[in-house]
Simulated assay, not measured.
Amino acid sequence: MGTVAACGLPRSGPNKKEIFAGSVLREGDAFVVTVNSRVTRATAVTPSLGFSGSFLSAGRLGSDVISSGDRLTVTVYENVKDDPLLGNSGQRLSQLQELQVDGEGFIFIPYAGRIRAAGASPEELRTEIAKKLDPQTPDPQVIVQRVAGDGATVTISGAAGAQGVYPIERPTRTLSSMVARAGGVTIDPETAIVRVTRHGQTGKVWLLDLYENPRLDIALRAGDQIVIEEDTRAFVALGATGAQNRVPFESQNLSAIEALAIVGGLNTSLADPTGVFVFRNEPAEIANSVLGRNDLTGAQRMIYVLDLTQPTGMFEARDFLIRDGDTVYVTEAPYVQWQKTIGALTGTAQAADSLSSATGAN
């Protein structure tokens, strides 16, 4: 039997004894730590997403502020009947439609000339136009309406329902309303991230946090680039699990018990529930906190051990958070190797008997 074992029977990876042999306490290069409530708290680090102060402090744009590129409709009602300034004889009402504010912020009104519109409200522009026309037609009544144009727009791309360029209007002055205007997202909201780039600065937030925390629903600015992207975090599952693969996260926070469930749980015919390991390169700050030290520098190799058979084992696995790049490994139960050894010996004996029988028959 020792000869067979020495030949190296097939297995999914190292056993518990071999993993513990790699501990720093045994002159290895990794710290092996049993997970408990203290370790769970020290390692509960989640991705920090959010917006900087410049994003959060920006107030909402006034819905009636005119910008270069906007389109306007100007209606003028003159108090003369026979010889109106703008209209035909007998026509007191004149309408100038689809006047686009040029790149310098001006529009042109006949008999009033170029008038600066960008930065003004429709009411302010109305007053200015009436003032310019008044010397030529007595007491003109002016109405200015802002039509949605391409003056104050944002770009939405990525996993949005409808990518494109959208104007900032009264109903779409905030991030969440603009995402809704673009048809929402085409990916699972649980793993959707909204990224906003403004004047070279970028901030991003979980889509669900955007809806749950009104403070994150920032006011938009002309030129904002909004990208809907899917969370790229993943962990690797190996050993005696239902599946061995690289597995993407399915939610913002993923516990060890959820990670096992995603890959089909433990393989009931192979797995050792006392040997669930999480391999991770831990930042020095967290490693020091976990180990109760203050002398470690640089990333540290950590191996966290979960024993699901302990009274609180399932609770610890439920509370211990998996992070991006982790490897979740489940060892095989000791008896599995015995079964393989016995199977190999039995198979060898059967093969020898078959060969002997064949030889004797000849």
Rank of each mutant, 00 (worst) to 15 (best):
I143S: 13
A118T: 00
T202A: 11
R215G: 01
I109C: 10
G113M: 07
H199K: 10
E229S: 08
A240C: 10
V147N: 12
D217K: 04
T202I: 09
I168L: 15
D150Q: 12
A180P: 07
E230C: 04
V142T: 04
G223E: 10
G184T: 12
W206C: 06
A237C: 03
G184Y: 12
I107P: 11
G164T: 02
A182T: 00
V227K: 03
V194L: 15
R126G: 02
V194K: 05
A240E: 10
I168T: 02
D139T: 05
T191D: 14
D134T: 04
A234H: 08
G200R: 11
T153P: 13
L133V: 03
L210W: 03
I129L: 05
F235V: 00
T197K: 14
V142L: 13
A117I: 00
T202W: 06
T241H: 08
Q145L: 14
D150V: 00
I226N: 11
R173Y: 05
L216V: 01
N245T: 08
S157L: 09
K132H: 09
I228R: 01
K132L: 12
A219T: 02
Q225W: 02
R181T: 00
E169H: 00
A160Q: 03
I156M: 15
A240R: 00
D209K: 02
I107F: 14
I109T: 06
L208W: 03
R114Q: 15
V144W: 13
G203V: 01
E128V: 00
S121I: 03
T155V: 09
R195P: 11
I143N: 15
R215L: 11
E128D: 11
G113A: 06
A192R: 06
G183C: 06
G203Y: 09
L133A: 10
V247H: 05
P189E: 13
N213H: 07
F108A: 05
Q201L: 13
T155K: 11
P138K: 05
